[in-house]
């Protein structure tokens, strides 16, 4: 076992101080120490994106980040995007358009889509497919995921236009 180090993380707005081996993978820190089991482990080689979280304003694959690298970072997981009383638009449109089946890829998928829409609020279908290519889904064939993201974009844009 390696030497442990003091690490601080801000996750979903809450600051955590932990003592961990630097080699600990961020996905394990989130899931096992902080109990945030929304992000999942799928491939472990940064291909599937099931572990996607938002770190310092970027979508990252938490299976390929050491917790030491994340020291001082601001992280948002699926648990921080919406609440049971106030779902994120994407959480609603994924359900509305049947953008999920087994649900395993869904937290990473929605977390990634959230960042994509911040960067490109009005994407084309092609841009959604390209922008979501770091997240694998084995169930849906993506068609309804793409639909859900486009629907969320137009809903968010309409809301913004109304305000």
């Amino acid at each position: 076992m390696g030497k442990k180090m003091q690490i601080s993380l801000t996750v979903n707005g809450e600051v955590h101080y932990i003592l961990a081996e630097p080699r600990e993978l961020l996905i394990h820190t989130l899931r096992e120490r902080l109990g945030l089991t929304g992000p999942h482990i799928g491939c472990e080689t940064s291909h599937c994106g099931a572990c996607t979280v938002d770190m310092n304003g970027r979508s990252v694959k938490a299976c390929t980040v050491f917790v030491a690298q994340a020291d001082g970072a601001e992280i948002t997981t699926i648990e921080g995007l919406g609440s049971p009383d106030g779902l994120h638009v994407l959480q609603r449109t994924f359900r509305e358009h049947h953008g999920l089946q087994c649900g395993y890829c869904t937290p990473g998928m929605i977390t990634r889509a959230h960042r994509l829409l911040i960067e490109n609020p009005n994407p084309t279908e092609e841009e959604v497919r390209f922008g979501m290519a770091g997240n694998l889904c084995r169930c849906t064939g993506y068609q309804n995921i793409v639909k859900a993201i486009l629907a969320a974009a137009s809903e968010m844009n309409a809301k913004e236009a109304a305000e």
Binding site: E32, L36, R95, L100, G103, P107
Partner: peptide
């Protein structure tokens, strides 16, 4: 009908085997 499962899955509240502690 919209799926009842999706309410928990979209919020990251599924309970898969590796979530068990």
């Amino acid at each position: 009908r919209k799926r009842v499962e999706d309410v928990r899955f979209t919020q990251g509240k599924g309970n898969y085997v590796d979530d068990i502690k």
